[in-house]
Design a binder for these strands. Structure first.
Length: 873
RNA sequence: GGAGGCAUAGCUCAGCUGGGAGAGCGCUUGCCUUACAAGCAAGAUGUCAUAGGUUCAAGUCCUAUUGUCUCCACCA
């Protein structure tokens, strides 16, 4: 039983993971004698590589999952990947392009073949990286949003929604990406600030009575104008309403209409209305029954409605139109103007609002119950403030555009009859038109928004629409863990989908965490090149160190600033744990240790067992609340400070002493505490704990053992407090040694008087070992102390350290004066509180009592200090 | 325009339902003490952004201000 001298996580992490996986440790049974606990992973895109965001998200999940598993839940962490329709298609198109091929050249079927091949090659990459992280996912249940199971669920849901009238097809204004050639949902549009101009253009009245000036940021859309609007209450234009204008650069005449949408105090108060290319204008157009003229094709090129500008790209058209207007004297002025421009979240091209025929999900009816379950806390966000973000979105939601003009994804299950025009939406592919019997059916070319299938993830992965055992046992899942940036995309949609299709919430809790930023607080991104590769960190420091770093000093929901230098403290900590374990193991000579509780504990034993017990309680409490940062801190402190710095040192006299019995009893406690420690911290650092566990002479894996729980048999409160006093005295002696420049190797003697004699006698061995003391002499008063000495004052003890020539009276006086000052400050504080009648009357009694006790002790200390100072002079 | 977060030691951040300011890194001093120098021991360092308020008691609760970040909306 011995560990290698050096802590080298690289040497064991991979094989331990393979061992776990091979033995089926991650695969839970559907077992009704146990409570279930399930989490579905936020499926990473198959295009992705593990980044720090994934590392954080999955570390959090794995800690919670491992804790629950050890607590005896039948625990399922269901992994999988997302086909990421648009992201993947963009990638594959790019790759084809590099080969000199366009997707249209090879056709849909061949394209999909290649896409699947690409998925086979790269889609598993991230899944293997999760294994490196130590994620205890049940790979036997691994899902993919486009696999058979999930696709069946998608089809089921689409057809059901369609039949309920919650999915419809219609011409609406949607966001169009001219680069990806597809529609986008509102959530897929990002806004970027852009410096542009506000062009003021003259639109002449048709009656020749001058012109109206309109202001626009998009002069090229002039070609599609079908009206100019003014506010009905605008006195400048009341007499103009109903007149017509000659639309420059065209042969069209357009009316002046009145609409409240126009602001009085912006621009000129006149707005050009382009229903086909602006969402607001589209609404205005509907109200006033205006024609809708599309002037751009799907690639952002001006079409046949664009007069002389036909065939020009939208940017080029803008330049030409501005130039032509200037030449015609129709450009009143050009003002610089900064505004936000919508861009595609995948390719960052400027999004073009256009009118187009698309499929939509009607949201109003679905959103209502989804808002309600969060309002009445059936689903809670942790931290709670994120529910506001959710409400804000859900309560202002518009219909969801779900069709995408892409090939990679779930193809919409709708067929059109060429003969009668019937639309057929069904769970099985139709052979003939049910209305006219025609066989000339063509399937809709579009695929569904990627998020349509992700919305079903908590139940599609468990077998929906079939009533599988998994679905019955594990649904609803227990928790969802995700970053706040996909609350809209994903969380909200899962909630209303679960309610609609399962009739039940998908999860009662949503744990929201922050984003990993770089050391300057910037988002880690490819374009900035400031990302850190988690796999590189794992190679260098080990997965445990990465996991520990990601949970150190974090508050729920807040962002993390991360840089590589956060890895060293974690690695050092694990090295500490490694070496402490080596210490325990190397002293254990394979003898049968006595059972814990079968012998009398020493004061130090009781102290550590008490502290361990408290730590167990705290860690469980924090884990239950998902306060990983706090649990992490408690473990760190207990292991490093209490166990390593104090307890291990305290055991050395017994381990190196003559009594075999004492040695074995001490070893029994050491071993017990270490095992508890390993279990406690296992969810955070699974590899090192499993590796050490293998040397501890236990059968099986630590990951399947039960998690420590608080035990009343270690409630040694009084003993703990007394031992804390011993520690205080040890610290004080060390301090004196240091301040008096006593050589660390030099042994000193202590003279003790006061009632502390009682317990110090019993703890002498620790005093001697930890403060390097030769002899402890118990005296009545300091008169008995020989030679020059320095003194330490406690409420229940006075300690004199004869140091002969090392003692400088002046220095010693100064030291005692400083101590006196501290004590007097404390006394003043206590007196202040206790002389306040409000405090005595209203504060909790226990607090008042402890304050009184402190005051009494400090007064005693003051008296002793004053005496010692007096005696020096 | 609307909503929210953050502001604590030189740096990065903890601080739960109010009750004597903490960690890591860095810094100073001394130590290779047979688990660990990726270490041990002893230290120094804070008008907890500002101004009010509530309370016996405020880093913690309330209000306002300043700075900063984010999300939503998107007025042409």
């Amino acid at each position: 039983m011995e560990l290698p001298k050096n802590f080298e996580p690289q040497s064991f992490e991979t094989s331990i993971y393979a061992d776990w996986e091979g033995k089926g440790c991650f695969t839970p049974e559907v077992d009704y004698s146990k409570p279930p606990f399930s989490i579905v992973i936020p499926p990473p895109n198959i295009t992705g590589q593990l980044h720090m965001g994934h590392a954080l998200n999955n570390t959090i999940q794995d800690i919670i999952v491992r804790h629950k598993r050890m607590q005896g839940y039948s625990t399922l962490w269901l992994p999988g990947t997302d086909h990421a329709s648009i992201a993947t298609e963009v990638k594959i198109v790019e790759k084809l392009h590099e080969e000199g091929v366009e997707k249209e050249d090879i056709g849909r079927e061949e394209f999909l073949k290649r896409a699947y091949r690409w998925k086979e090659t790269y889609g598993g990459r991230i899944v293997h990286q999760l294994r490196r992280l130590g994620c205890s996912c049940d790979w036997s249940r691994e899902a993919f949003t486009m696999d058979e199971r999930c696709s069946k669920a998608v089809r089921e849901v689409f057809v059901n929604l369609y039949r309920k009238g919650l999915i419809y097809r219609g011409s609406r204004i949607i966001n169009w990406c001219p680069h990806c050639h597809t529609a986008l949902s509102d959530a897929e549009v990002e806004y970027e600030p852009q410096d542009s101009n506000l062009w003021h253009i003259r639109y002449p009245y048709t009656d020749g009575s001058g012109y109206m000036v309109i202001a626009t940021t998009r002069p090229e859309t002039l070609l599609g104008d079908t009206a100019v609007a003014v506010n009905p209450k605008d006195p400048r234009y009341t007499d103009k309403i109903g007149k017509t204008l000659k639309l420059p650069l065209t042969d069209r005449e357009i009316p002046i209409i009145a609409d409240d949408y126009v602001e009085l105090d912006f621009g000129t108060g006149c707005v050009k209305i382009t229903p086909a290319h602006d969402p607001n204008d589209f609404e205005v157009g509907l109200r006033h029954n205006l024609p809708v003229i599309r002037i751009m094709d799907d690639g952002g090129v001006i079409n046949e409605n664009g007069y002389a500008y036909k065939g020009l790209d939208r940017d080029e058209a803008r330049k030409r139109i501005v130039k032509d207007l200037e030449e015609l004297g129709l450009m009143e002025k050009i003002e610089p103007y900064a505004h936000n421009v919508g861009v595609c979240y995948r390719c960052h091209s400027t999004v073009e609002p256009i009118v187009s025929k698309q499929w939509f999900v009607k949201m109003e009816q679905l959103a209502k119950p989804a808002v309600k379950v969060v309002k009445n806390k059936k689903v809670s966000f942790i931290p709670d403030r994120f529910s506001k973000i959710y409400f804000n979105w859900m309560e202002n939601i518009k219909d969801w555009c779900i069709s995408r003009q892409l090939w990679w994804g779930h193809r919409i299950p709708a067929w059109y009859c060429a003969d009668c025009g019937e639309v057929i939406v069904d769970k099985t592919d139709p052979e003939v038109c049910p209305k006219c019997g025609s066989k000339r059916l063509t399937r809709d070319d579009d695929v569904l928004d990627t998020w349509f299938s992700s919305a079903l993830w908590p139940f599609s992965t468990l077998g929906y629409p079939d009533e599988t055992e998994d679905l019955k046992y594990f649904y609803p899942t227990n928790l969802l863990v995700t970053a706040y940036d996909i609350i809209f995309f994903w969380v909200a949609r899962m909630i209303f989908s679960g309610l609609e299709h399962m009739g039940e919430i998908p999860f009662p809790e949503v744990l929201i965490h922050g984003i990993v930023r770089d050391h300057l607080g910037r988002k880690m991104s490819k374009s900035l090149g400031n990302g850190i590769d988690p796999i590189m960190l794992i190679d260098k420091y080990g997965a445990d160190a990465l996991r520990f770093s990601l949970t150190t000093g974090v508050a729920p929901g807040s962002d993390i600033r991360f840089s590589e230098d956060k890895m060293e403290p974690s690695r050092n900590f694990l090295n500490k744990l490694w070496n402490a374990s080596r210490f325990v193991l190397m002293n254990d000579e394979g003898v049968n240790l006595p059972e814990i509780g079968s012998f009398n504990y020493t004061s130090a034993d009781k102290w550590i067992l008490y502290k361990l017990n408290v730590t167990i309680k705290e860690v469980n409490t924090y884990l239950k609340k998902y306060e990983l940062g706090m649990a992490n801190a408690k473990l760190y402190d207990f292991i490093w400070s209490d166990f390593c710095d104090w307890y291990i040192e305290l055991t050395k006299p017994a381990l190196y002493g003559d009594s075999k019995r004492r040695k074995n009893e001490t070893l029994a406690v050491l071993t017990y505490v270490l095992k508890q420690i390993l279990k406690l911290i296992h969810p955070f650092t699974p590899f090192i704990t499993e590796r050490i566990w293998k040397e501890m002479g236990e059968e099986g894996f630590i990951m399947l053992r039960s998690y420590p729980v608080y035990s009343k048999k270690f409630a040694f409160t009084a003993e703990y407090r007394r031992f804390e006093r011993v520690k205080e005295i040890i610290r004080a002696v060390r301090n004196v040694r240091s301040e008096m420049n006593v050589q660390p190797s030099k042994k000193i003697n202590l003279c003790v008087s006061g009632e502390a004699e009682n317990y110090l006698k019993r703890n002498e061995v620790y005093l001697k070992k930890l403060a390097n003391v030769e002899n402890v002499v118990y005296v009545r008063s300091k008169a008995e102390v020989e030679g020059k000495f320095v003194s330490i004052v406690a409420a229940d003890a006075e300690i004199y350290i004869p140091l002969g020539d090392l003692v400088d009276f002046e220095q010693e006086t100064a030291r005692l004066q400083k101590e006196l000052k501290n004590i007097e400050n404390e006394i003043r504080r206590s007196e202040g509180m206790l002389s306040n009648p409000g405090f005595v009357a209203k504060a909790p009694e226990a607090l008042v009592e402890s304050e009184k006790k402190k005051l009494a002790e400090n007064r005693l200390k003051r008296v002793k200090l004053l005496k010692n100072i007096q005696d020096l002079s």
